[in-house]
């Protein structure tokens, strides 16, 4: 782990990893979209609308996963003082917010024909909306605090405190009688979903994860460049 703490090493690693990541991402998206839009059968209740699920469900997973990794990176930053951990959390936030927004929008598109409303205030939807607010709040902290070192310390606290919401999102459908359907993939006793639907879902999830990793590497690269620029500027005014 400590080996990659060095930004120069990280940049080199990103350089070599990015092309294959993009290659596999495109393949996974092509396969995933083909399977979900063409080969997967329509649902016996929901009909063709079910295909929205293949975009919606992995996006919601990602929104939770990215926030979890942000909180984990913040804990790592606090304990091991790993210099890239804060940067990774900062870079992940807008990507996670994007997935969260995608989950909300596609969920809304699905909700209109199914529930007859673009939005209903049930526990799952509300807690995902709160998740989006937490993403925005976290990003606002980085923006509001001038000194990057101080911003990192404060952002850690915000990320860790907000993690409380993640289990609430996950279990909201079990704890409250939610309109939103319950878990059918990650549940005790194995998935309850047909294999022809499960596979495209998993491949889409893989594609999203790869997309996230690729975007994260790029965002961290630009973050490193920005910090370098700041250092150079500070050196420029030194002693003038």
């Amino acid at each position: 782990m400590q080996k990659f703490a060095n930004p120069a090493r990280f940049l080199k690693l990103a350089e070599t990893l990015l092309p294959p990541i993009w290659g596999v991402t495109i393949l996974a998206f092509a396969a995933g979209l083909y399977m979900s839009l063409v080969t997967a059968p329509p649902d016996y209740q929901q009909g063709e609308t079910v295909r929205i699920m293949f975009v919606h469900v992995p996006a919601a997973w990602m929104a939770l996963m990215v926030y979890t990794s942000m909180a984990a990176a913040s804990v790592m930053a606090a304990i091991f003082r790993h210099p890239l951990a804060d940067m990774a959390a900062k870079a992940a936030a807008p990507i996670g917010a994007m997935f969260c927004l995608l989950a909300l929008i596609t969920g809304s598109l699905w909700g209109k024909p199914m529930w007859g409303a673009w939005w209903v205030w049930d526990a799952r939807l509300t807690s995902v909306f709160v998740l989006l607010l937490l993403y925005l709040g976290y990003m606002a902290v980085w923006q509001a605090i001038e000194d990057p070192h101080r911003a990192a310390l404060i952002a850690r606290i915000v990320a860790i405190a907000g993690f409380i919401n993640v289990p609430i999102v996950k279990f909201s459908v079990d704890w409250w009688n939610s309109l939103h359907q319950g878990a059918s993939v990650f549940r005790m006793g194995g998935p309850t979903i047909d294999a022809r639907m499960l596979w495209p879902l998993l491949i889409m999830a893989l594609a999203y994860t790869l997309l996230f990793v690729g975007l994260l590497l790029i965002a961290m690269r630009s973050e490193i460049a920005q910090r370098k620029l700041r250092q150079l500027r500070l050196a420029g005014i030194e002693g003038r």
């Binding site: 000194d147 070192h149 910090r227 250092q231 500070l234």
Partner: peptide, 12 residues
Amino acid sequence: QADSLACQRGGR
């Protein structure tokens, strides 16, 4: 006693 102290503020 202070020993080889170094201090940074705002990256400076």
